[in-house]
Structure formats: C-alpha cells, structure tokens
Design a protein around this nucleic acid. Sequence first.
DNA 1: AAATTGTTTTTACAAATGTTAAAAAAACTT
DNA 2: AAGTTTTTTTAACATTTGTAAAAACAATTT
Lengths: 186, 186
Amino acid sequence: MGSFINRCNFISPLSEQICSELQFLLKTKVIKKGELISKQNQTNMSLYYVESGLVKHFYYRNNRPLILQFFKENSFFLILDSFLSNKPSEFMTTAIETTRVSYLEYQNIEKLASKYHQFETLYRKIMSRATLGTYNRFKDIFEHDATSRYDKFLVKNPELMQRISLGDLAAYLGISQVSLSRIRAK
Amino acid sequence: MGSFINRCNFISPLSEQICSELQFLLKTKVIKKGELISKQNQTNMSLYYVESGLVKHFYYRNNRPLILQFFKENSFFLILDSFLSNKPSEFMTTAIETTRVSYLEYQNIEKLASKYHQFETLYRKIMSRATLGTYNRFKDIFEHDATSRYDKFLVKNPELMQRISLGDLAAYLGISQVSLSRIRAK
DNA sequence: AAATTGTTTTTACAAATGTTAAAAAAACTT
DNA sequence: AAGTTTTTTTAACATTTGTAAAAACAATTT
C-alpha cells in the first residue's frame, strides 16, 4: 500500500474498504526540479501528499519572493486559499527537488467524505492540521525576530538546511538574503 | 430571532427546524469591560458570536502583549488553537468594552452537525472563514511593514479607531507603542 | 584549465524599529 | 476645580534590517 494511505491511517483509521477505494482514486505525478505543481491564479482543490522530494509554496510581493511553507517527503499539503474559497490561488507551488506526489481531487474527497464517516473524520483532521500549521507560522513571524526564527528553523529542520538555498530560507524567514547572511555570521 | 441565527442563515441557509433547535441550545453571557471570556490554559471549544461590544484575543510574549485579533459586534469567533486540538489554549480573550455574546458549546455543535446536514455545511463554512482569517492575518504581517499595516488597518477599520487604545493597536500590529506613535506623527 | 554562471558573504550606508526616560495631553476621581 | 492616574507623544540613542554594489566562493560548461 502507498504511503499516502499509510499516512492517512496513521492520522485516523480507515477500513479496508475505504483504503482500496482510495487507492483506486489516487493519482500520481512526478514534477521535475524547478517545475510548477500549481500556478498562480489556478483554482487548485486537490489534496497532495509528497511521496519524495521537496516543494515550496510561495509568491512574489514587491519583486521579492516570499515562501509560505516548505513541504518535504511524507507531508500532506494543499493550496489552502484556493481550497477553502474555491477561487484561484494567489500562490504557486514548485519543486525544489524532483518530486513525486500522490493526490486526490476535490470531487473525490467529497465523494469519499459523504460516503464514509471515517473518511470525513480523516478529512477534518487533515484540515485542522493545515489550519494549525498556518497558526504556528503566523505566531512564529509575529512574536520572534529574524535571528530567533533562524535559530528555531535550524533546530527544527536540520536536515532541510542541506536541501534549501539561503535565498529560499531568507524568503521563508521573511528577510533579505543579506540579512540572513549576517545572522549566520554570528 | 437572535442575530446569531440570522448571521448563520446569511452564511448558509438553515431550516426552520434547525433554527428553533439552535435557538434552544444557544446560551448568552455578558462580560464586563476588562473581564475575561476565556482564560489562558483553558480548553475552550465553544463557538461565540458577539452580539454587542468588542473583545480582543491575545497573549504575552517577553512581557509584551500581542493581540491576535479583535472581534466586534456581529462577528463569530472561537479559540482556534484549543478548538482544533482539543487542548488548553495559549491565549486569552477579554472584553475591551462590555460585551454580550451568544455561544454554542462543542457537544451541541457536534450534535447539530451530525443530525443536520445543513448545519454541518454551516459549521464547515464558519471554520473555513476562521482559517482564511488566520491566513490573511499571517500575510499582513509577513509582507507589509508596520506603516502599511497601520494604513491598511485605518482604511479597513475606521470605526474601531475610536474604540481601541493605541497600546492595543500597537500590540495588534506587532510593534511597540512608541513606534506606532511615530508612524502616526507623519 | 578557463570561462561562465549562480550562490553566498562582505562592505557601506540608509531606514525602520526597539528601549528608556521624560514631557504632554487626556481621562478619571474626589 | 484640583489632584491623580492613564494614555500618548517626544527625545535620544542602540539595534535590526534593507539596499546596492562588490568580492569571494562554488558549481557547471566548454
């Protein structure tokens, strides 16, 4: 069984029946390094799971890139603004490394959720996690200065440090690359 | 019929049957200016509606108050971190003005949601709105400097300017009160 | 190896924000 | 009204972050 389904089961148990139906509805896609998974102004309501690789969810503001979130292997992600409002997204998602994703399209999420109570519970939990993720991201930016944001990132994601460029890390921390370089110099 | 229910109907239509059952389950509370609606470390899973008044949702970090959000009359709010994780909240909620709230306790939300599909839809929409609110709050902090955050607040919430102290506004914008005073001086 | 391109660091200066303390203004109490 | 308390502004200085340009370093191509 694929790790999308394993991960689902870990979050909230699903019957054999649901698993096999889910397996049938899941699609897979490989995105080469540098290519887009989801474009700006695209209405994207799929639930993605990173089987392998690394993606960034980002946009531009005043010609500077700002990264909302990184998603590495074994993570769910979705284009939250589009998903919740059923509108085109302001953001884009691109592969930092060549990435394999499994994904479930919205109509199939709805289908499974209305058919199976267990799936609806899973769905709700995944949405809660996404919301709490946004909440934590907000708090991090709101209450800490750049230096402590950097220090925290280092402790929490040591393995990502080898996989992310400093430019991307600066765009995630919300500071200029020069400023990040200065912080590191200490 | 109370404005809690009117507001629900505006967001997503409810049958007469649901409305009267909801009416029956709703509770009301008056919180005097300065008093707490929800304490830190309290597990609070009610859905609140501000009938009249104004509240702030906030916490302290390094002895400085930080305000996550204001909620004025005709707004839903919930203690999102507690609600989604079923754990004690890091935050507290207090009345800036004497406030009347209607609220629906979690077990009753669940009850209505599992009994009525229309209510489940409403519930989902309210949660989506809360999540999008957090998203917008994050973006505001992430991409704009303090001056433009202040300018935007002014345009978007002119009537609140008369009701909120500068200290509270600074705590909302994430800057010191001195810094806010400087911004205003321009 | 040399040339090219991309990434990271350094330098120098400007702008924004924090901190502390004091002054001024406004709101509240007696 | 006078006194008291709270809120807001101002001043002076320190720290953080931004910007632009150059230098150093690393990776890639020819």
